[in-house]
Write a protein that binds this DNA or RNA. Structure first.
Lengths: 158, 158
DNA sequence: TAAAACCTTGGAGTGTGCTCCAAGCAAGCG
DNA sequence: CGCTTGCTTGGAGCACACTCCAAGGTTTTA
């Protein structure tokens, strides 16, 4: 009855500013079968999202137990890692689905996969450039407010 | 009657890969009054979006002509430039509205504005790091497909 | 002065990427 | 056996950031 589904830790504001990204727990060695909830803890995605990815054709075929429950394998986790990376680039899910289709279609789609990844790479490069541009603007403003804060402090001191 | 509202050039796929970002037209010198459609061409935003920004409190007070039409000034365009930059960082609109409120409230909010920009800056830095990480993954895959393409080519040649 | 182009509003609609629900089956434990 | 916990499905719902509409007033051009 009660479902509750691990509603992914609300990381709205990155609380600790002086730590790396929240590292996902590492996969246990020598295992090649994971339940959906194990994949939840390994990837940080919700079970809802994992099932949704499958519905929209973003996943390869996922093995099932004799009673129909999903049994993910290491290659599926590798795929989810890639999807996670692509998601960070802002790539639309539809494009990732297209890439997944190309993979399913076999080796003769290498060229098209190459093109897709290459243009994604170009996008990433320009996103980085944009962000660095923004960083400069931000730094100018931050310095302004820092100086203004200093000015107020020394005003209080005098 | 006919509205049509300049439905922002569909830049779904960045067509020309070997060109800089699509530079917005530069502001005419010595002008300090712009209609909404002039702001549309200067910013690349739609008129809908400009009005919506105003409704949600993301804009400072915008002057009006004697008949109630918007007349943007250079400082408003500066603000829109900043908003555009912040939007690129993935900052939620709600946070930008918060910043706009702080600006409206006056000089005594300097410290809070500093904090907000600083944490945004931190976010930008980690986004850049993520993207560079992704770039490495992408490059490995791209190299794989490039090599595979070479292999196929030399196979055909032999 | 008339037509065409542009601007106004509140509110409704859209696309994306999840997020959740209801109802039911299954597996492990005491 | 009953209880708890976990997994299944299709479909509905949600948050965000726009995007558009209808109906009407304004400005510019010919």
């Amino acid at each position: 009855m009660t479902v509750m589904e691990t509603t992914s830790t609300t990381s709205t504001a990155s609380a600790d500013s002086c730590a790396g990204p929240p590292r996902q727990p590492r996969r246990p060695d020598g295992q090649d079968k994971y339940t959906i909830s194990e994949v939840v803890t390994l990837t940080g995605l919700t079970a809802h999202t994992l099932r949704w990815y499958e519905r929209i054709g973003l996943m390869p075929h996922i093995d099932r137990s004799h009673t129909g429950q999903r049994r993910y394998r290491n290659r599926d986790l590798d795929w989810l890692d890639l999807v996670g990376k692509l998601r960070l680039t802002g790539m639309p899910v539809a494009d990732m689905v297209r890439y997944a289709e190309l993979v399913r279609e076999g080796d003769h789609t290498y060229a098209e996969r190459f093109d897709l990844l290459k243009s994604t790479r170009d996008d990433v490069l320009s996103r980085i450039a944009e962000l660095q541009d923004t960083l400069a603007v931000l730094d100018r403003k931050i310095n302004f407010y820092a100086d203004a804060g200093q000015a107020l402090a020394s005003e209080r001191a005098s």
